[in-house]
Computed example of a mutant assay.
Amino acid sequence: MIKYDLHCHSTASDGILSPTEVVLRAHEKGVNVLALTDHDTVAGVPEARKHAEALGIQLINGVELSTLWEGHSIHIVGLGFDLSHEKMTALLAEQANLRDSRAQEIGAKLAKAGVANAYEEAKKLAGEGEVTRAHYARHLVQIGKVANDGQAFKRYLGQGKSAYVKPQWVDIPSAIKIIHAAGGVAVLAHPLRYTMTTKWVRKLAENFKAWGGDAMEISGCGQSRDQYQLLVKLAEEHQLAGSMGSDFHFPCAWVELGKLAPLPAHIPLVLEIKNDLV
């Protein structure tokens, strides 16, 4: 049986492992088809591809785009697109600018809250990747301001907290159009992980399909059976293909590359709706 993982992260965004290390771990865990989907960047894909090919892993070009919908930050995974497509390149450059501006503003707010040089320290943690709130959370843990990343968001970085900065991302229809223009497929990432009711999740899925979305993530790590069944039902209702992704960021007990339940037989895998991906 082929083992898929179509959503994971590396040091190119907010992951802990380098693209090479992600691929090596995926191989160790028996993954056959992998997509590296860093936040708003494809910088890690060439490195990952080199090592994936050597290990016999099929690597799918991927990215996780940050978008805005009804005041919520929603993630759309793009798969199988041309990395050098003009519209995608322009979007990622714009998203990078927005991300850095937001990161600097977060740093300024943390300085007012008594945490000096936070942007510079977060940038060190990010290395060559883009600075995210996850890097700020790690820094706050390192300097003893909080005990863990969760507390960092509850006390400083979460919505309504002292260092929160409202994002200014692309809208979902534009993200879908650009993914399609670049030859890829658009996937609604982890639909049940947003802070909204089931009624709003249904509305999100309905809008996503109406705007041309192709699939939604059904199989993820740490799901209950009821959550899995709800996602299957939503995919059926809106005639969306299914995807499988761990959303792996770092080694831990509850999120692991390839540790995913198979899709139901009647739900097509997102890769099957694009002939050149399988």
Rank of each mutant, 00 (worst) to 15 (best):
E237H: 07
A113K: 01
E70N: 15
E128P: 05
E236V: 05
S174M: 09
P191K: 05
D247T: 00
F153V: 08
Q168N: 13
E272T: 13
A265Y: 09
L140E: 15
W200D: 14
E130N: 14
Y156K: 06
C252M: 12
L192Y: 06
G127M: 04
P262R: 01
A52E: 08
A111V: 04
E21N: 00
C8E: 04
Q159I: 07
P173T: 09
A189D: 02
K87I: 05
I60W: 15
W254M: 05
G184A: 02
K109Y: 09
E206D: 13
T198L: 13
V141T: 10
K145R: 15
P268K: 14
H85V: 05
A215N: 09
N97K: 11
D38M: 00
K29F: 14
I273R: 11
L125G: 02
L36G: 00
L83E: 04
R99G: 12
A253I: 04
S101N: 14
T89C: 12
K3L: 13
K3H: 07
L192N: 10
H249Y: 03
H75D: 00
K3W: 06
H75L: 00
E70A: 14
L230C: 03
A35F: 01
G245H: 06
W200H: 12
L234C: 03
G242R: 00
T197E: 15
K124P: 00
Q151P: 03
D40K: 00
E130A: 13
Q151R: 14
T41W: 02
K161Q: 15
H85S: 11
A210D: 10
